[in-house]
Design a protein around this nucleic acid. Structure first.
Lengths: 190, 190
DNA sequence: TCGTGTTTACTTAACGTTCAGTAGGTATAA
DNA sequence: TTATACCTACTGAACGTTAAGTAAACACGA
């Protein structure tokens, strides 16, 4: 089975799932965009869910990869957080379709197939919590409600799926910098 | 037409749309939950979209109401922001189904019906920006990228739709207080 | 280099189910 | 007798998936 063809199918599916939603996108839509007939898709996949699963897997794995390498190659806790936010935000410019579909449609996956995706998400959050806890221990961060702050930060970043545009006024790096600055220093003047 | 019956239909629809998704919920599902047959629903509504529209409208109108009355009855800018975040977060405990469906499924509305909802959302964001700008003018907030900070705050709050549970460890008020504190003072110790 | 079998990458045609919406009727209460 | 609030039974279209077939490329022994 042709590897680049598979990548193409995933890319097209992700784009259409993002534009129209998973349920609203038909196999005919995807096939048409690939200039083949619907049954040709079934030469590459078993079910429609396989497409969604592959997309979600790719998104969460890429998030994880980035987090792991940032935590490995950088000691300074504040710099780690900066790069983490930057990585997260940059996902929307570099893999916009994939991460958007992951965030918006993951719940459409049948229960059996969600296990791996879910566990990866939990690992991702756990690493985030570790980072904040280390920051508090080191005295760099104040005494925070760690799980809640992780949800705040990842919520702020995840919500990009609802408004981020490649051609928007700010680049991903600019957005990331503003978010990081806000999370570090807050709104209050002093 | 019976008003309380209508409310009941909206409440049941919102709950099912939240649990299973808009597309995945059938009119039979809704009717069954109401102990009637499907055509009985069509005595009250014209199309399935009407249900989604009513839910989204109810959510955004309630958000707006709250914002307007908070801005009217409170002068202190910091206190306004505190109450705004609290109002937003409390929507998830008081109208969890409605606001979750609004956030997750608004995009399923056909283009013609989205106009009003969209314009309300824009007004909501515009008021938020005004608030922050006033805070900066008054010297209470530092010099912020206002549109981006609004997206950060509303993203943080909106993302509750993905994780908030009525029976979770923290109450809505507790969550709101942590979010507000984080947005005001940031993570850094000083 | 020719012939034969196999694999790849599709096609046409259809099946079976799901589901929004409808036609037309009925029971009850005012 | 009229309006309200349903019901049974159905239609028609959409859509995931499959069956069965094929054209072209490739592998390989004679």
């Amino acid at each position: 089975m042709n590897k680049s063809r598979w990548d193409e199918i995933i890319a097209v599916s992700a784009r259409l799932f993002r534009e129209k939603g998973y349920r609203a996108t038909t196999m005919d839509d995807i096939a048409c965009e690939l200039n083949v007939t619907k049954p040709a898709l079934y030469y590459y996949i078993k079910t429609k869910h396989d497409l969604l699963y592959a997309i979600c897997k790719s998104a969460i794995e890429r998030l994880m990869e980035g987090m792991k390498s940032i935590m490995a190659e950088q000691d300074d806790i504040e710099e780690q957080l900066r790069r983490l936010i930057s990585w997260h935000v940059n996902m929307f410019s570099e893999r916009g379709d994939v991460i958007t579909v992951y965030l918006a449609e993951e719940s459409e996956l049948p229960e059996e197939e969600r296990g791996f995706i879910r566990s990866q998400s939990r690992d991702y959050e756990a690493l985030y919590r570790q980072l904040l806890e280390r920051g508090i221990e080191e005295g760099r961060f104040r005494d925070l409600d760690v799980p809640m702050v992780v949800r705040a930060i990842s919520g702020m970043c995840n919500w990009l799926f609802a408004w981020y545009r490649q051609d928007g006024a700010s680049t991903a790096d600019e957005i990331a910098e503003i978010f990081f600055d806000l999370m570090m220093k807050g709104c209050i003047s002093r």
